[in-house]
Amino acid sequence: MVNELREAAGKLLDDGKVDLVIGWAKGSLPLASTPVFISSSDEADQLVFDSTCGNNLTVYFTKDNKKISRDRKKVGIFVKGCDSRSLVLNITEKQLKREDVTIIGVPCSGVIDTRKVRRKAEGREVLEYSQDGDTVTIKGKEFELSVPLEELLSNACLSCLRKDAEEYDLFIGEPRKFSGESDPYSDIEEYENLSADERWERMNEEYSKCIRCYACRNVCPSCYCNVCFVDQNDPQWIGKTPEITDTMIFHIIRNLHIAGRCVECGACERACPMDIRLLYLNRKVAKEVRERFGSDTGTDLDQKPAMADFREDENQDFIMG
């Protein structure tokens, strides 16, 4: 597959269809890939795709990194299913034009959460990582383990229903269609069934780890305000210290800002240096949006963002009678 991927990118560049291709290359660590920007076909052999390619590359069309794509007219980008939904969302929100981007889909079988790998290795350093079908081999000094990929997958991938891009110009291999409705929110329902005290305690435990580095926000292609509400200082709405209420309010509001816009790619959770289970909030919001407004983010180029839309006869059971 890797060869096809490199050929496809090289051909697009050679034919002048794109000036730049954004993809993944092998990283400096066994468990990491790294985003790469390719502008000529002889660099295309850096490109890879495997289960370490967790970055949602659509982020490079947003924030200041937009500059990369702004300077070039036509950009090609490799996408997993979730990344393509981010791209579609950004197109519907007029952040970029469909005709300026060449979308190249890659078949995704989920990406790993490095923390889960570390847990499997019981704290020992992982020095080699290889994958053969659904089995992953991790090696370190004096140990070697074979683990089913499933057990290492990012939480976001475990509930993913649309693994492959549905909006693309080119697909490497054969795209699988929407896998049909199953119950993707069973983990959230389980959490909802806990008592309020327990939920509050767990949330406190998670968010007290936050160091306010904003890695979650910055890797998110849906978070692209010129000035984020936490960075506003006149007036300053919330404190910038890792004090627990400020931290929780930051995360709650960030999740409301991406309500109906989150594609549940899980990039935020994988980026978090403090191992916070960020997706609980994202997925709770996504669940509400899906159940109440029937909207599936990033699956339709003509879609109106759920929170900018309404129906007059909507359920309003939460409003006092």
Binding site: D197, E198, R199, K284
Partner: peptide
Amino acid sequence: AVLKPLLEFVG
């Protein structure tokens, strides 16, 4: 409609 359940969700 999203805020209210989310607040309940956090406790």
